[in-house]
Design a protein around this nucleic acid. Structure first.
Lengths: 209, 209
DNA sequence: CAGACTATTTATAACAT
DNA sequence: TATGTTATAAATAGTCT
């Protein structure tokens, strides 16, 4: 939004970086305040400047929001089923060439993705159909189906990531710059970290819900 | 920034408010991601939707940032925050800023995956609850939220797959065919923000910076 | 060095699908 | 109801004070 477009890469110059940080932090907090005002919601932002100084914004305050978040953040797996994994390339012999294995994984990831997409489409449709939430029986079954797919997908990603971790150095050493040359982004986006929390009475009794 | 200027007061219409929240939350997280990228700083945002659903953004994660904040106390407050003493500057200890694109993305995706797991678990639970004749009001909202989250998650996964697919070639080229002409073009993006949220272990009382 | 000044880039409110 | 599109309002990068 300035005289010219800047690449989304860390500003190298310390001075400029500090200026950018300051300006953008102000803007970010302003946006947060608007969001809180317009939508009457609780929000908290914590950011450490390049120099390490903490800045924060909170409505109604940082602690109340963080506390609320942490209190519900506890996880509780109640009888989670373990989805059966689909055939992988680990049938019989270990691959010496991890890269090859990784590529296979990626291929499988793709297929999994397709299934995932369908499962979600169904789940969504089902939920929409339920609308008021009366057809819970139907929606539940569909959602479960989707969940199996998704959980499996997630597990695979975790594994894949672990595999890649071991190769990261090599990759970085050889094509870091290549990887950095990116194509900014398009109009579309995707984000929204969210999660649901179960009720728990873990410690952290400092705040209450 | 829209067709016309709007008053900075709570949007009365429920529906419009939800839309505004969704869009602005997206924008806010995007801004936060840019700030984190451009200035290489830690930042965490926690916001509860009008419906009470928690959303979060964090670089490198919500927990690390919040932990650091709570442990060290705060200094600057641009928002409403409880005043406190001014402890010594932390000295800014930033070092893990070198995660390459892929590794970082996967790491983030892992977190997203965990969040997804929760969302699904909740959706499932709500569906089950509804079927069991529990509070239909709550279960309905949870169900809807779950769907929304899942769709977003699906998008992220699909995006990730595409990214990985493009990177795979480079990876192979780097470790195996580095000797060959690595003429691969830029593939991938640059938004390495860490959308994510959600807790992990059962223990919520300890953080590591 | 913080604040003021624009040319531009972004974010988005109102619509549209 | 969630997304996509478009006309405008805002944010802000580079400069200047």
């Amino acid at each position: 939004m300035g005289r010219r477009k800047i690449e989304m890469k860390m500003v190298t110059d310390r001075s400029c970086r500090q200026v950018t940080f300051s300006k953008r932090r102000t803007g970010l907090f302003k946006k947060a305040n608007e969001l809180a005002t317009l939508c009457a919601v609780q929000i908290a932002i914590i950011v450490f400047s390049p120099g390490g100084k903490p800045f924060s914004f909170g409505n109604p305050g940082v602690e109340p929001v963080v506390g609320r978040f942490l209190n519900r953040g506890d996880e509780h797996h109640d009888g989670q089923q373990r989805p059966q994994r689909l055939p992988r390339d680990s049938g019989g012999r270990r691959r010496r060439n991890q890269l090859n294995g990784i590529q296979r994984r990626i291929q499988l990831e793709k297929k999994r993705g397709e299934a995932l997409e369908k499962a979600l489409a169904r789940a969504k449709a089902s939920a929409a159909a339920a609308g008021g939430g009366s057809d819970s029986l139907i929606s539940r079954s569909v959602e479960e189906m989707g969940m199996e797919e998704l959980v499996e997908m997630r597990r695979r990603l975790v594994d894949l990531r672990e595999q890649l971790d071991g190769r990261a150095v090599e990759m970085e050493a050889s094509s870091t710059l290549l990887l950095l040359s990116n194509k900014s982004e398009s109009a579309g986006d995707s984000r929204g970290g969210s999660w649901g929390g179960g009720r728990r009475r873990r410690s952290v009794a400092k705040w209450r819900d």
